[in-house]
Simulated assay, not measured.
Amino acid sequence: MLKAAIVILLIAVVVSLFSGLVFLFRDDGGKRRLLNSLIVRVSLSVALLVLIGIALWSGELSMNPTP
């Protein structure tokens, strides 16, 4: 369940990234869709980092001890 949430958040960040790219090329400058896309992308990234941090702290995810 946790890994699925991480993958969904990663996909959402990538979708927001590409939607911001589309807004960058298509908007004339009067709309704030590019700024809103940036806000969504940063918020999703923070949520992803918090989720990974909580999962590492609780022991549901573990780091690879051997390379």
Score class of each variant (00 low, 15 high):
44 L>R: 01
21 L>G: 00
35 L>T: 12
35 L>M: 12
38 L>M: 15
47 A>R: 05
37 S>Q: 04
19 S>F: 12
38 L>D: 09
42 V>T: 02
26 R>H: 10
39 I>P: 03
45 S>L: 12
44 L>E: 00
30 G>Q: 12
45 S>E: 14
26 R>I: 04
19 S>W: 11
29 G>I: 11
46 V>H: 05
38 L>F: 06
46 V>G: 10
20 G>T: 07
44 L>Y: 03
43 S>I: 00
37 S>Y: 01
22 V>R: 07
18 F>P: 01
37 S>R: 09
29 G>H: 00
20 G>A: 11
36 N>C: 08
20 G>K: 00
20 G>S: 15
27 D>R: 04
22 V>S: 07
23 F>Y: 15
44 L>I: 00
42 V>H: 02
32 R>I: 14
33 R>T: 13
27 D>I: 03
36 N>Y: 10
40 V>Y: 06
34 L>K: 01
39 I>Q: 09
28 D>I: 05
36 N>S: 13
41 R>G: 07
20 G>P: 02
43 S>M: 11
44 L>F: 15
19 S>V: 00
34 L>E: 02
30 G>A: 06
24 L>S: 11
42 V>G: 02
37 S>P: 08
46 V>K: 01
45 S>F: 14
39 I>T: 06
40 V>Q: 02
46 V>A: 04
21 L>E: 02
25 F>C: 07
18 F>G: 00
23 F>S: 10
19 S>D: 11
25 F>S: 11
23 F>E: 03
25 F>P: 05
38 L>V: 15
22 V>L: 04
36 N>E: 13
44 L>T: 06
45 S>Y: 08
36 N>P: 06
37 S>L: 04
33 R>Q: 11
24 L>F: 15
29 G>S: 00
27 D>V: 11
41 R>I: 09
32 R>M: 06
31 K>S: 15
47 A>I: 14
23 F>N: 02
47 A>W: 04
34 L>T: 06
27 D>Q: 08
20 G>L: 10
24 L>I: 07
39 I>L: 14
35 L>Y: 09
30 G>Y: 05
21 L>T: 00
38 L>C: 07
44 L>A: 08
47 A>P: 09
36 N>I: 13
18 F>N: 01
23 F>R: 08
36 N>R: 12
20 G>D: 02
23 F>P: 05
31 K>R: 10
35 L>W: 03
28 D>K: 13
42 V>S: 08
33 R>A: 09
18 F>W: 10
41 R>H: 12
35 L>H: 07
26 R>C: 12
47 A>M: 10
39 I>S: 10
45 S>Q: 08
35 L>R: 15
20 G>Q: 13
32 R>T: 13
19 S>P: 03
18 F>D: 00
19 S>C: 12
30 G>E: 07
34 L>M: 14
44 L>W: 01
28 D>A: 09
33 R>I: 07
27 D>F: 05
33 R>Y: 13
35 L>K: 15
18 F>E: 04
41 R>L: 06
22 V>I: 15
39 I>E: 15
30 G>F: 09
36 N>F: 11
42 V>C: 04
35 L>G: 08
